[in-house]
Amino acid sequence: MTPAQVDAFYARLAARMPNPKSELEYVNPYTLLVAVVLSAQATDVGVNKATGPLFARVTTPAQMLELGEESLREAIRTIGLYKTKAKNVVALSEILVRDHGGEVPRDRAALEALPGVGRKTANVVLNVAFGEPTIAVDTHCFRVGNRTGLAPGKTPLEVEQGLLAATPARWGRDAHHYLILHGRYTCTARKPKCGECVVSDLCAFPDKTP
């Protein structure tokens, strides 16, 4: 896409989604971090069902440590890989209390040093909690970047770097949400809804559906 086409791409998605936001439910940066860690290989809907009751009781790392790993397991047992995730959440909570005054750091390296936190999770936290113009490349974002021709790449990092390079600054903060939500609800994996897509004419996908 040309720079003008990329700008038009985002402008149309913005018109369709004027207030894009994460579909994970959270109370503060810490609960957002926990929710994103729990969302690996799980749906946002499934995570929200478990974290609703959990976050009614626990909103800080200290409270999570007081709850304990065994009780946390029970609270999130409906989520895939819940045992490993519970271990990671308790471990990262210990680090936040010990090294960061109980606060979530606004720093990529510090975030990625936490158990269960990779680049994608760090990008989500930096973007959603702190307003940084990062782009978290999940399966939806990866698909949209490649399928449309917006930012082709063989790995999530390649797509992320391509998106960061191509995305105009004015769309930087919300680009992450536009792409994920567009991939989740319109540019779906098996049967994209090209007939109702607002950026279909800008998209390089050769096998468009009616």
Rank of each mutant, 00 (worst) to 15 (best):
V58I: 15
V58A: 13
T60F: 12
T60V: 14
P61Q: 04
P61F: 00
Q63E: 15
M64W: 06
M64N: 09
L65W: 02
S71M: 12
L72R: 03
R77L: 02
T78Y: 00
T78M: 02
I79D: 03
I79Y: 07
L81F: 15
K83A: 14
A86E: 08
N88R: 14
A91L: 12
S93H: 08
L96M: 12
D99E: 15
G101S: 06
E103I: 00
E103C: 10
V104I: 09
D107N: 14
A110F: 00
A110S: 09
L111M: 04
L114P: 02
V117H: 04
K120L: 02
T121I: 12
T121K: 03
N123S: 13
N123M: 05
N123K: 06
V124C: 11
V125M: 06
N127Y: 11
G131I: 08
G131C: 09
G131D: 11
E132Q: 14
E132D: 14
P133E: 05
T134A: 15
I135H: 08
A136C: 06
H140F: 12
H140V: 05
H140R: 03
R143S: 11
R143T: 13
A151K: 08
A151L: 11
P152T: 11
G153Y: 07
P156I: 01
L157C: 00
L157F: 01
V159H: 04
E160Y: 02
A165C: 06
A166M: 13
A166K: 15
P168V: 08
A169K: 14
A169Q: 15
A169I: 03
R173Y: 10
D174Y: 14
A175D: 10
Y178V: 04
L181P: 02
L181K: 04
H182D: 08
G183Q: 07
R184D: 13
R184A: 12
T186I: 15
C187Q: 05
T188P: 01
T188A: 12
